[in-house]
């Protein structure tokens, strides 16, 4: 296996395509057949054998209603029907406006909390028929959206350089209405400043140069000019992270890749 250039075979190729397009477009399946030298029927065979592959484009929001045994005995099928009624689309289909895809899944493994529904990666537990409408409405508005001003889960932090301990806070330059965190950064041949929101949970940044998405930048302390990139890697994308000392006792590490929200906030001075 270690010598196999494509150890995952057809499945991993198709998983990559689905991750990119959200479904398996016909021309991509043909491309896979050509690339691997396999007949198209084999590729199609694998694509239709497994439940997680879709040959049709899917909606912006994905609603998965669990129909595992525990959810079934707690009324999962009724929840699936109610989603179908609210969205006007049968299970396995996408709404006409391409907003929602409704699917049923065999078991999500959160059986104690059934009936379970997952919408865009957010879990809803003990769903009742009358609660379905609200879930759809919240999904339409965007489940990832947070109100920076009112959300209790978002709170300001003050940070300093992990090398010289000089404060990195910039009271002049506000982001999200709060003093920002100012560091210098470099990517490609660009040097400049970036102001990060000091609200834990907000991912807003401002900078004097546009930073293209997915750029991995080097971060420096504007006071001691030390290279701030640390030794730990981002739990989401494995890019090196930038540690900063949090006032009150802790270390926050943020991913150095533009657009990645990976971060770790450790409380206390624990080294391990």
């Amino acid at each position: 296996m270690a010598t196999d250039p494509n150890p995952g075979g057809l499945i991993s190729l198709l998983q990559d395509i689905q991750a990119r397009y959200g479904y398996l477009p016909a021309d991509q399946l043909k491309a896979v057949a050509q690339k691997t030298g396999r007949p198209l029927t084999d590729v199609y065979g694998v694509a239709t054998f497994y439940r997680s592959f879709s040959l049709k484009p899917r909606g912006k929001h994905l609603c998965s209603v669990c129909l595992g045994t525990a959810c079934h005995v707690r009324g999962g099928p009724i929840i699936a029907d109610e989603f179908s009624r609210q969205l006007d689309a049968p299970a396995g289909e996408t709404t006409a406006d391409r907003e929602f895809t409704l699917e049923t899944v065999n078991c999500l493994g959160a059986c104690a909390l059934g009936p379970i529904v997952v919408v865009d990666g957010h879990y809803f537990s003990n769903v009742s028929p009358v609660g379905v409408k609200e879930i759809v409405e919240r999904a339409r508005a965007g489940l990832d959206r947070v109100e920076v001003k009112t959300d209790q889960r978002i709170f300001p932090v003050e940070v300093s350089c992990a090398r010289c301990n000089h404060s990195l806070m910039d009271a002049e330059h506000l982001v999200d209405g709060h003093p920002s965190i100012r560091v210098t950064l470099a990517f490609n041949s660009v040097h400049g400043h970036i102001w990060l929101s000091s609200l834990y949970g907000s991912f807003n940044v401002e900078s004097d140069h546009e930073i293209p998405m997915d750029t991995v930048a080097d971060f420096f302390c504007p006071h001691c000019h030390a290279h701030l990139t640390g030794s730990a890697n981002c739990p989401v994308c494995e890019t090196p992270m930038v540690p900063m000392i949090v006032r009150g006792g802790g270390i926050v590490q943020i991913c150095s890749r533009r657009g990645c929200r990976g971060h770790i906030l450790d409380i206390g001075g624990q080294v391990f």
């Binding site: 709170f155 006792g249 802790g250 409380i267 206390g268």
Partner: peptide
């Protein structure tokens, strides 16, 4: 939990 620990200086 993190918010409260930091805000109240309980980190140690």
């Amino acid at each position: 939990a993190k918010r409260e620990i930091l805000a109240n200086g309980l980190a140690d």
